[in-house]
Design a protein around this nucleic acid. Structure first.
Lengths: 354, 354
DNA sequence: ATAATAAATGTAAGCGGTTTCAAAATTTCA
DNA sequence: TGAAATTTTGAAACCGCTTACATTTATTAT
């Protein structure tokens, strides 16, 4: 059943049916009703492909994340998806498995899709090809909104976190708990969260006059296995750290794995503060202090930014295309894993802290 | 840039371009090359909306899950998505938040979408409306594949688990560890996993001549909070169980929360076996014995089933439309949480067990 | 070499909507 | 009451692709 059938049945033209369907003004109330009655009687549904073709645009957007199974991204998807439904968009979901090649493939395959917009957590900040493709989307009037990670020199809208501040707070918390030998397991330098959190770490050390030691700053690349290896290396230093700032949730799992396998107990042998909460730990012996973020809300926000971008572009096109970049505040949730018996449960007293 | 521009540039007709694009036979190698050169030179991408409209079908499918954030579904999505890309499909993602109304809304909104297929974990087995809508999709030649949960009387293809056997093994494991007072926290009776796992539980008790006690079988509805409440009720019975079979991952979290809050230690005060693994626990003090499933693979399998359904329908239509329902085997991973000091770490010895 | 056959290409009609432009119907106002 | 202004409607072109059918070109067999 299509618009012509409806038209015939209602004794009007297709143009009129179309107007009714799209809530145009200038449709007499009586004819509107006539058409609506037919539509309700039969189960007519307008063909979206035809609509898309005719209008040169769709109500579809895509979300591309590096790791579908990471709860952080799942939560993000949840928020974004809810808001998308609210706004009447459908979302295509893709995972790149942290692989730039795959990311490019996906973007490439989406070029034919008449996407209305794109929300993306890019694998790397430095993929020129990604930038080129994203720019093409933007030019084809499919705005791009980034989340969490950036694209260098891309100048895209985005929802990010105050990563460095979050990291600073995490590390400061460890310092105030009495630690001075604090390691960080870092994410790749090709991602904002990677280098910004490292920056926060360095800032905190600097503020308290703690020397930065290169060997305390291995990469875990935000991956469990690599982080496990990094932790292992840290603990086999001749002078191992007493605390570690785990700069990502997967990283934290890697650390915990090492702790468990080597019978290191948090609070007795080692301290840890993580970035991004891990819900499942709440009910275990691990009372993890973490830098937390409103992840669901970030997803929602990304969708809102995207819609705004879609609408303003539709209107002002060349005019007001200023970039909207939000930096979401983090929050330190103290649960105790920053302390360590060896150091004495020094509240903030043991060091000269303001 | 469209197919006409390409045609002009290459000095051929649009039909020829179309043929080249779709790898038709009967295209001379030389003209094929001519066209391809033009396509590569300019950056032509065929408009999928036009294609969809013209062919009356798309390469899009939808995945509808009840809870986007549940790692089980995330894993499922991962497998499905990977396989979908492999097969050249894009997947729309939706979450129903375990709400039948929302489920219906989503299905309703998808009717216009020319979907090629639908993969779904329905909220409830008993939603007549859902069944009606799904049947409509199927009739509109968009096959439906269910995962994990069923639709009563729907007769849809699907990938399920051997839930009862899995549950049976879980409970038997507890029995062999010496327990006789074993509770279950159940899922809703309106879902296959809900009642099948309960069935497995009952079977196990029956086999070992253990009386079934109604008060040991509260509902947790596969939700953390409800399961927490259920656990609380269980432990405040005058004769509380010594072990619990937690029939779902969220349920397990609810139990763990109760244990932690009430200082019950697994292995000392209580035993537990779960259904569906919880990765994050691996590195904590909780060595959870669980019924595990190849979740990623189930997602892959669902996509394979879907494609088969799409293809056979395209071909044999009325002919061979027999339903394909796979029942995936579960696997019990013993990690120790089935034991309990109070009972003596009875291997299988303490009861007469074959 | 030529008719018969097969292969390659082109023409044009859809697919199901939206939208411009003109015509018809209605309302407003002198 | 009739012309002008306004609202409501319809005819038909268009979006960009596929494909049935017609036509041209190449190949094969006689």
């Amino acid at each position: 059943m299509n618009i012509y059938d409806v038209a015939k049945e209602a004794n009007v033209s297709v143009a009129t049916v179309s107007r009714v369907l799209n809530n145009h003004k200038n449709v007499k109330e009586s004819t509107r009703k006539k058409v609506m009655d037919v539509i309700k009687g039969k189960d007519f549904v307008p063909n979206s492909a035809a609509k898309n073709l005719s209008m040169g645009e769709s109500r579809n957007i895509a979300l591309i994340v590096p790791d579908i199974e990471n709860p952080f991204f799942a939560k993000l998807l949840h928020g974004l998806s809810d808001q998308a439904i609210e706004f009447g968009y459908n979302v295509f979901m893709f995972g790149t498995d942290e692989d730039t090649e795959r990311e490019l493939q996906i973007l490439e395959s989406l070029k034919s899709e008449l996407l209305r917009g794109l929300v993306m957590i890019p694998v790397s900040e430095d993929s020129e090809n990604t930038k080129v493709l994203l720019n093409r989307f933007r030019e084809a009037s499919a705005p791009v909104v980034l989340i969490d990670r950036d694209v260098r020199g891309g100048d895209f809208d985005g929802v990010f976190s105050q990563d460095d501040e979050g990291a600073f707070n995490a590390v400061e918390c460890l310092i105030k708990a009495g630690h001075r030998k604090i390691a960080i397991i870092r994410g790749s330098d090709t991602s904002r969260p990677g280098y910004e959190r490292y920056r926060g770490y360095k800032k905190a050390l600097a503020k308290y006059n703690i020397e930065l030691r290169k060997e305390y700053c291995p990469y875990g690349d935000f991956m469990e296995e690599n982080s496990y290896q990094a932790m292992k290396k840290l603990m086999s230093l001749e002078n191992p750290p007493t605390a570690v700032f785990s700069s990502n949730n997967m990283t934290t799992l890697g650390c915990l794995r090492y702790f468990k396998e080597n019978n290191l107990k948090i609070g007795r042998d080692i301290s840890i503060v993580g970035f991004d909460d891990i819900k499942e730990l709440r009910y275990t012996d691990i009372d993890l202090t973490v830098v937390d973020r409103p992840v669901y809300e970030m997803g929602v926000e990304a969708m809102k930014l995207l819609r705004k971008a879609i609408e303003t572009r539709d209107k002002a096109d060349e005019d007001g295309l200023f970039v909207k970049r939000n930096f979401i505040k983090t929050r330190l949730i103290k649960r105790g894993s920053e302390f360590c018996e060896r150091l004495g449960k020094g509240e903030s007293g043991s060091l000269d802290v303001d």
